[in-house]
Design a protein around this nucleic acid. Structure first.
Length: 465
RNA sequence: GGCGGCGUACCCAAGUGGUUAAGGGAGAGGUCUGCAAAACCUCGAUGCAGCGGUUCGAAUCCGCUCGCCGCCUCCA
């Protein structure tokens, strides 16, 4: 079975074939860098991280581009509020986003272009649109004339007249149509400004993505992604701009990630119901968060809760406990079991069905634990290899997961590692003396602190619960 | 007002016409263990919001009803 992707443009799953065999060009809309990213953003970028990883796993060479929007009203407002430059704001949050991404285990895209570094390309597209009669000037502003683009609405399946009828926003009377959107905004005092044929100003929101995607990936390219909320108007407008300017499709497959909700409501800055990535990482491991996201399909809405993360955490522990057992038991690694990898592909090829892929992983976890229990320590090297490969393709295989969990606990300063070792020693002395009450007392005490004791054939070990 | 989505066990969540409705978490019983823990085994929806319909056959298609959400405005 070949890879199928749900294409927003077609509103159904379609077989995926890249334009150039074996190579995938993917553009994902990044963040506007005016504030810390929250886990709603994280869900979307996790989704594309998994898609990126899986495409590579499936043998494609992937050129992955994800931009930063670093010129925007909100950035200007933030800079004014703080009395600093826009540059100071954007570089702060670009840096922070990079750190968050690294902590979360996202593979870095091949390019992470910034809007402000692409003014020449932006201006060139607007000029092209103007030459084609798709853009018009009002005072120092340039607008896109939606009426000139017959396909307008094809991505979001909206009709122009319905959009106009339903407009709930105050309409700028200078625009020919309420749907026309800004390509270039004349600068006001105190705003970042670039020279242009229409006077000093700055680009509108959508045009940067048209300019950068085409520059880095050409046109058409294979996959364009982002959160659901970008379908309209952002991606619709990108299509109008890029296809209007170049007369060919912008992207062939449009992928949109579902929202992260809290209590059934979309997590968003404006509702104030968000947790930043940093908030969550101070309490949970990145792998737990990744498992939480992988356990539901990327297009469905997902309700966030800390209870849910706790569950995900326990599930991740289960996988890593098993991997650790296997790592000790397997003396000579073998190539991954081909049949298992095939099954994995079958699940992931169906529009990146990570919940089913996880189910497969857990089936293997159970099966392999059973073999380990039965001491049939033979013939499972290939299955172990496949388990690792599958986890890796989902980004779950983060080395040192269990160790990190230990370190996080030790940081709380309740007990040191050597103190725990000493208590375990005392307990084992008591056990040898068959002083069970004392042995159990020590174990219970450790347990209360969050340390679980396990007596294995290889000796006593401890884990963080 | 327009357009779209969702409602599956105690919780999370796959499955969108056809053998026994994945998987995880929690729970119960069991094996192992000094006792535990972990692991493994077994048990958990004769039913998929409700009601009607189409079909040899529906969680899956159609209609209506109820509940929730999203987009139409900046938004991952």
């Amino acid at each position: 079975m070949a890879l199928k992707i749900f294409n927003t443009l077609a509103n159904e799953k379609e077989p995926f074939t890249p334009l150039v065999p074996g190579k995938v060009r993917m553009y994902v809309c990044g963040v506007t860098v005016y504030d810390s990213a929250h886990i709603g953003h994280a869900r979307s970028f996790f989704t594309f991280d998994v898609i990126y990883r899986y495409l590579k796993f499936a043998g494609f060479e992937v050129d992955y581009v994800r931009n930063f929007t670093d010129v925007d009203d909100k950035i200007i407002k933030k800079a004014n509020d703080e009395g600093v430059s826009c540059d100071a704001v954007t570089s702060r949050y670009i840096e922070e986003f990079a750190q968050d991404g690294a902590s979360l285990g996202w593979l870095p895209p091949a390019s992470e272009p910034r809007a402000t570094a692409h003014m020449a390309e932006i201006i060139a597209i607007i000029e092209k649109l103007e030459a084609k009669g798709l853009a018009y000037q009002v005072d120092g502003d340039m607008y896109y004339a939606v009426s000139g683009f017959a396909d307008y609405g094809k991505l979001s399946r909206k009709k122009i007249d319905e959009l106009e009828a339903g407009a709930r926003v105050e309409v700028d009377q200078r625009k020919r149509s309420p749907l026309d959107f800004a390509l270039w905004k004349a600068s006001k005092p105190g705003e970042p400004t670039w020279e242009s044929p229409w006077g000093p100003g700055r680009p509108g929101w959508h045009i940067e993505c048209s300019a950068m995607s085409t520059k880095y990936l050409g046109q058409p390219f294979d996959i364009h992604g982002g959160g659901r909320d970008l379908i309209f108007p952002h991606h619709e407008n990108e299509i109008a701009q890029s296809e209007g300017a170049y007369g060919q499709p912008l992207a062939r497959y449009w992928i949109h990630a579902g929202f992260l909700n809290i209590n059934q409501e979309k997590m968003s800055k404006s509702l104030g119901n968000f947790f930043t990535i940093r908030d969550i990482l101070s309490e949970f491991d990145a792998v737990a968060l990744r498992h939480f996201f992988l356990a539901s399909h990327y297009r469905n809405p997902l309700d966030f809760s800390k209870d849910g993360l706790d569950e995900a955490s326990r599930a991740a522990d289960r996988i890593f406990d098993t991997i650790e057992r296997l790592a000790k038991a397997v003396k000579t690694p073998a190539p991954p079991d081909a049949g298992l990898l095939d099954s994995f592909r079958q699940e992931m090829d169906d529009d990146f069905n990570s919940p089913r892929a996880l189910a497969l992983i857990f089936d293997e976890v159970r099966g392999l634990n059973k073999l380990l229990d039965e001491k049939k320590a033979k013939g499972f090297e290939a299955r172990y290899g496949a388990l690792r490969a599958m986890c890796d393709a989902l980004g779950l295989l983060q080395e040192g997961y269990l160790e990190r969990k230990k370190q996080r606990w030790l940081k709380k300063g309740i007990l040191t590692e050597s103190a725990i070792g000493a208590l375990i020693g005392q307990r084992n002395q008591a056990r040898q003396a068959k002083n069970w009450p004392e042995a159990d007392r020590i174990r219970d005490e450790l347990n209360r602190q969050g340390v679980a004791i396990e007596d294995t054939p290889e000796g006593t070990i401890w884990k963080v619960r």
